[in-house]
Design a protein around this nucleic acid. Sequence first.
RNA 1: GGCGCAUUCGUCUAGUGGCCCAGGACAUCGCCCUCUCAAGGCGAAGAUCACGGGUUCAAAUCCCGUAUGCGCUACCA
Length: 491
Amino acid sequence: MINHVRVRYAPSPTGEPHLGNIRSALFNWLYARASGGQFIVRIEDTDRARLVEGAQDSILDALRWLGLDWDEGPGMEGEYGPYIQSERQALGIYQEHTDWLIENDFAYQCYCSPERLAAMRQAQQAASKSPGYDRHCRDLTEKERAEFLKQSPSPVVRFKMPTDGDIVIDDVVRGEVKFDSALLDDFVILKSDSFPTYHLANVVDDHLMKITHVMRAEEWLPSAPRHKKLYEAFGFAMPELVHLPIILGPDRSKLSKRHGATSVIYYRDQGYLSSAMLNFLAMMGWSLDDSSEILSREQLLTYFTLERIHASPAVFDKDKLEWYNGMYIRDMDPKTLSEQLIPYLEADVTGLPASVARPIDREYLTAIVPLERERLKRLSEAPEMFEFFFTDDLEYDQALLIQKGMDADGARAAAEQALAVAEAASDWSTDGLEVAYRALVEETGLKAGQLFGTIRTAISGRTATPPLFDMMSVLGRERVIARLQAAARAR
RNA sequence: GGCGCAUUCGUCUAGUGGCCCAGGACAUCGCCCUCUCAAGGCGAAGAUCACGGGUUCAAAUCCCGUAUGCGCUACCA
């Protein structure tokens, strides 16, 4: 049986790659790969006014980052190209199809001015009638057309929708959905700049590119009946429709900039791992069972099915994304993590202080990483978290040296004693240091928490750190001694 | 306003007529571990399955209605 799956991701280059948008790309990709089909990327740049410079690159970057490779599309020319609609427009593809529709009485030129349309809409609203084009130009005589054409030489083209009867579309996720034709107007398929609207371009290209499944966000469901009529007029076979649930913000409206960052690129830059993002995105609108939370790319590929796509919308939960990220960070080996951390650490403004020489010591870094790994939620937290390992002069509130039940003199004394032990230590390993300092606890009569707390602050400048002796061992005797000396001098 | 879709813990979800006085995960809280912070382990709290009617011996699951939310209603996608 030859039912070769071909799906597509068709972004409009009008901004940053939106989380919801990339989630659609992911589902398409997953389905293509899971079924041995093809994943096609098509750039829908028919809105010349809203085009954003660089948006296409940034969308493709997001795809590459997540490892969503495409079989045909920009940079991967296949037999159904070109894959950028403006290039297809230049080839006359949409014009030809539009002409055919007009010749066969499925479409007509409309000469109505934007002013007339606006006035019409206003009147409809005032009379609280359902809005829609009044078909003013649908049944003009040849003579009238010629007359109007003189006044508006670049008309739009509208598609003739049926005026009554139901249009039933079949959606894989939602089943049959019925629309009343009387409520659907004659929509524009070709704009006055001779670029197609989404509806025309989408139907024509999906057919020409042999797309078998149209998987897109739910907000497109209301336009499905228009597309169906277009397919019928052309005599094209209808692809399967799969409308994905929308991704919502915390206030339950469609996720948008006012909810904060929505760009996948932003999350990448913040230090979210692509594996975590992939897993998280997959679980928004799809799930495997009652217990699987962590699913690798490979597992996703083997388990993904259309049947398990949800119908109801999902709220974007940043906390859960962070949890996923932490899980995946902890799962990384120190070497790989170190490499990924370097750009964040060496970055100019957001990285380690300028006083820290670049490139940073890779070996030292690799020793630090195992100590901090389980504390990292985002790679971008590393500079702040690792800073004390690299800087020579620690700045901190010296009151932090004084532990519960101690006074300033006690803290100074503790630092001095700790210093003496550091200077005398013969074994600088984690275990060796622990033996030496446990002995000091006995000797001083301080509580372990008190002594260790003072040392912790002395050598790190903070109260929350990795385990003390691991930290001392990695910092090295020289740094530890210098820092204990400073603490002993504290006043 | 019209049309459409959706509706299980705060959030993501399991659940397709009896296994459910509803299971898991995130977040929250507590305990344990412990030199701090994490991580981890254990536990708690949290859902009258939106509401109201049916159908059935039996409904979160099927049907009808209502409500609420969201989406669409452009020469934007």
